[in-house]
């Protein structure tokens, strides 16, 4: 059961990775990274169950916090007025 959950989470991670690779705008990538972080938190919880009662759950909590801080930092430091209002690779339609 836990193994099936782990595989399902890996599949969703692959989808989030595909979105992060493809873009096209920076906001897609922010969302993809955020989703990937959430899946990492879930993945750690599943690993916690798979490895037979380790104490990884507090690490999952820290990951959730880091994920939040990371997304806030990205949105704070990203300045779309640089070139082309946030569309980085849409210049070649």
């Amino acid at each position: 059961m836990l193994a099936a959950t782990a595989v399902a989470i890996l599949v969703i991670m692959a989808l989030a990775l595909a979105r992060a690779f493809a873009g096209p705008t920076i906001y897609d990538r922010v969302l993809a990274v955020n989703m990937f972080g959430s899946k990492t938190v879930l993945f750690i919880c599943v690993i916690n169950g798979l490895s037979g009662g380790g104490n990884y759950l507090d690490i999952a909590l820290v990951y959730a916090l880091i994920n939040y801080i990371g997304v806030i930092a990205m949105l704070k430091f990203y300045r779309p007025d640089r070139d082309g209002a946030g569309c980085d690779s849409r210049a070649t339609p």
């Binding site: 992060a20 990538r29 990274v33």
Partner: peptide, 8 residues
């Protein structure tokens, strides 16, 4: 794009 690279 370096912002995208940082996210990856």
């Amino acid at each position: 794009n370096l912002y995208a690279a940082v996210m990856l």
